[in-house]
């Protein structure tokens, strides 16, 4: 019968992930691959927006997509129709991706020659905000039907992202959604955030979003 003893570990779970994320970010910078982490609630339009984004940029930038889902490959199939490289990551019940899982995903995608890798994170406004994936920039989508009070309910997500896309603005007339109130609430949490209203359905606002992304990819890959 072996003897149990106390073995001290003293490790912060978030800090450990932050360390791995910083490491990954550094490697991506050397490798000249820009990684965008795209987050939102389920169904707010991540995949539809990605298809628009790919169509706007694929002639000038080589793109790779990672679709993270708890257990399906519907989104990866949709993306593969655009002709860009795509892989499906299954999180097996996990509600977010951490830096280590992102690293494995990037290996699976093989980022050699890819200028822009985009991670469609699991649909969830809470957990992905707490785990740095190692992305160069973080973006989130808030869609009109979700309501303008989301920044009040999920402040962390809104305070850590670089860009907020307000999607489904074509449906604004059918919902009681106050865009100005969203801007005010979000800017209070995050003064440096860029807010772009879009409709992934009609294409409105996609140009401005594509311009922002193009510019960031360029900055990163020319560093």
């Amino acid at each position: 019968m072996s003897k149990y003893k106390i073995i001290e570990i003293k490790e912060s779970v978030f800090e450990d992930n932050n360390r791995r994320a910083d490491l990954l970010r550094g490697e991506l910078e050397k490798e000249k691959t820009f990684l965008l982490n795209l987050m939102s609630s389920p169904g707010s339009g991540k995949t539809t927006t990605l298809v628009r984004t790919i169509d706007a940029l694929k002639d000038e930038i080589s793109i790779g997509i990672m679709e993270a889902d708890i257990d399906s490959d519907v989104d990866a199939k949709t993306i593969s129709k655009t002709g860009v490289k795509v892989i499906q990551l299954h999180t097996r019940g996990m509600c977010h991706l951490d830096a280590e899982m992102t690293r494995q995903g990037l290996q699976g995608l093989d980022t050699q020659g890819i200028d822009l890798a985009i991670l469609e994170n699991v649909g969830n406004l809470v957990c992905p905000a707490e785990f740095d994936t190692g992305a160069s920039k973080n973006a989130m989508i808030l869609s009109v039907p979700e309501g303008d009070d989301k920044p009040l309910k999920y402040p962390l997500m809104f305070s850590i992202v670089d860009v907020l896309l307000v999607n489904k603005i074509d449906a604004m007339d059918f919902f009681d959604f106050d865009l100005e109130a969203v801007k005010e609430r979000v800017t209070k949490l995050n003064p440096k955030i860029k807010i772009i209203p879009i409709s992934a359905k009609t294409g409105e606002g996609i140009d401005q979003w594509a311009d922002w992304l193009r510019c960031e990819v360029k900055k990163w890959n020319e560093k």
Partner: peptide, 9 residues
């Protein structure tokens, strides 16, 4: 949110 220690062998 820390992992303090384990009792183990």
């Amino acid at each position: 949110f820390m992992i303090k220690e384990i009792i183990a062998c």
